[in-house]
Nucleic acid binder design. Structure first.
Lengths: 345, 345
DNA sequence: CTGAAAGCGCTTACAG
DNA sequence: CTGAAAGCGCTTACAG
């Protein structure tokens, strides 16, 4: 900055003011300074600026599993949306481990590496979240709400943090329509961990949609997975051994559904002749599967922009708040392919 | 830090020294200070530290396309490897656009946001790369080498930057063995952009392996793609119209291969009865494809650790250099599935 | 209207 | 052996 000032024949203060567009610097001086700065390839030292302004121009993104194509795509879209607003994205992967998540939260927030964190929570409530709440950190919950416990200032802060997630109800109702319409009466659900709010919600939503269409609650079998592919495979063998052996399976997550298909094949079952399959989360290559997989697509770009907008609003209030100020819920859509067929007689 | 110092009854200097493990602070004092700091949830302000030390503890990762599952997985592994070494990862996505890449390079490097950048170059040589070379920035090239032009100090610096990529020769030789062994004599190659070094190399490697096994050079048709799915689909129709219509197709990239399969289906061709397909880049769900896709798997974790190690070596020299000090090339492996069959009569 | 000066939170060379 | 002080590169309240 001193070099730019010298080259432009002004003070460092003038350079700072000019580059931040302060109107007190006459337009032509400003332009001259900007030209010199550009020509010299000058960029302000991010750390120095952060030290002065308490703002880093970076946001943290703590996701629970980058190996999951849904989160990988989501991370990419968030980076893109953040960059469009001039923010850098610091990527972290908690691997569904609350301890790792808390460690990242601490490094990012307490270390002032970022202005706020977009978080896919790995667990219900943790010490790190409590600490983040106590320090009034800017937090946006993504994909999963967090059941806030306690009633102190920290809890109140967390409860007020925006939550961005997709609205699955309509799409799941369509799944129920599709399945019952094809004559399925015994349904298996491979559920996310019931320790997570999303696990409980997505499962209950599916169950309600099904029972509302005449499926007996006792004919719905739930096998709990852990969001990973292997757990889908294990869940399938559990479902196949159930009293009400399902003729259709709903995999409540992309990776678990892939595992389920592998499990079904290993058991020698045909899709959809023996068992129909619907998954939650879509991917561009699902139509290459054998058979092409029917799936619920989440609005990934919508989630990403909503999360970034919510965060930037917390940082500088420049962007309009979310519709209801604390939540954005773009809708999911059912993508019909060929993995669902009539229930076997 | 001042608060920690006050709470521990020492000077801020003592806190700094203690937390950095400086032996001049007696062990028990050090432990006491560390305990107080931990209890108070203290983390040093990253920007302030960066300002003083000229080191950020962050590395930039500029990849060319996060939507590509290969790069998504690679980014995840790099984040993991970096975190294990105490480094944060700033993720950027150039979208194969050299201008975007240069902008990120500038923000990250000139703005001192990171200590160095692991870069998947989007193009042969750019102004941003030249600038990075001139400033002697720490750069590690990933997946693709860069043809450095010029002979100034900047060019010399760039030429000395580590290059981390997989060794494809053996696996491609196996592909050639597989295809020729099945009787294929007319082969189509869907190539990466020939403007990139990787495009030229991967294509030539495949051609040499094929001709070495008796395939006539005139029976090898090359259609150039751009790493994206659509381009694979377009390339297929080009290949199908070729004079020597291929009975087997090698897709030199994961997404382009997926596009190729879609193109083949759209053309009403069966895999592998009419056309065999082998792809470059593997994914855990390729065995769910119809038919399961035979593919060359890159050593993703190996690439990630090699790239991170190379970068950290540049930053502090703490890690042993790469084997030959400027390159790491873990080998690819051919994963045989069912998308290759005997050449049609 | 402009520039000099203070201070953000660290680290480390230096003085005591 | 310990602490005070300087200074990294910015921004902005303040003095001229």
């Amino acid at each position: 900055m001193r070099d730019v000032a010298a080259a432009a024949g002004v003070s460092v203060a003038a350079v700072s003011l000019a580059l931040s567009g302060n109107p007190r610097i006459p337009t032509e001086t400003r332009d001259r300074i900007a030209a010199v700065a550009r020509e010299m390839g000058y960029r302000p030292h991010a750390g120095a600026r952060a030290l002065r302004t308490e703002l880093t121009g970076s946001l943290g993104l703590v996701i629970s599993d980058v190996a999951n194509p849904f989160f990988a795509e989501l991370a990419g879209e968030i980076q893109r949306a953040a960059a469009a607003e001039g923010f850098s994205t610091v990527l972290c992967n908690s691997d569904e481990d609350a301890r790792v998540q808390d460690e990242y939260l601490q490094t990012l927030l307490a270390g002032s590496r970022v202005d706020g964190v977009i978080l896919v929570p790995a667990a219900a409530m943790t010490a790190g979240l409590e600490a983040a709440g106590k320090s009034k950190a800017r937090l946006v919950f993504l994909d999963r709400p967090v059941e806030v416990s306690g009633r102190g200032a920290a809890a109140r802060h967390l409860a007020g943090c925006p939550v961005v997630r997709s609205a699955a109800a309509d799409a799941l109702a369509q799944v129920a329509d599709l399945l019952t319409g094809l004559g399925h009466r015994r349904i298996g659900i491979i559920a996310p961990p019931m320790a997570t709010a999303v696990g409980v919600e997505r499962t209950e939503l599916m169950i309600t949609s099904l029972t509302a269409r005449g499926v007996a609650a006792t004919d719905i079998t739930v096998a709990e997975g852990d969001f990973r592919q292997d757990s889908g495979e294990r869940a399938v063998s559990q479902l196949l051994g159930a009293a009400a052996r399902p003729t259709a399976i709903f995999g409540a997550d992309g990776l678990m559904t892939i595992g389920a298909i592998k499990g079904l094949r290993a058991a020698g079952l045909r899709i959809p002749a023996d068992v129909s399959v619907v998954g939650f989360d879509d991917a561009p290559w699902f139509d290459l599967f054998d058979p092409p997989l029917t799936a619920v697509a989440q609005p990934i770009a919508g989630l990403a922009t909503a999360a970034v907008r919510a965060m930037i609003h917390l940082v500088d209030g420049s962007l309009p708040a979310l519709p209801d100020a604390a939540a954005a819920t773009p809708p999911c859509a059912l993508v019909r392919r060929a993995s669902c067929g009539p229930a076997p007689a």
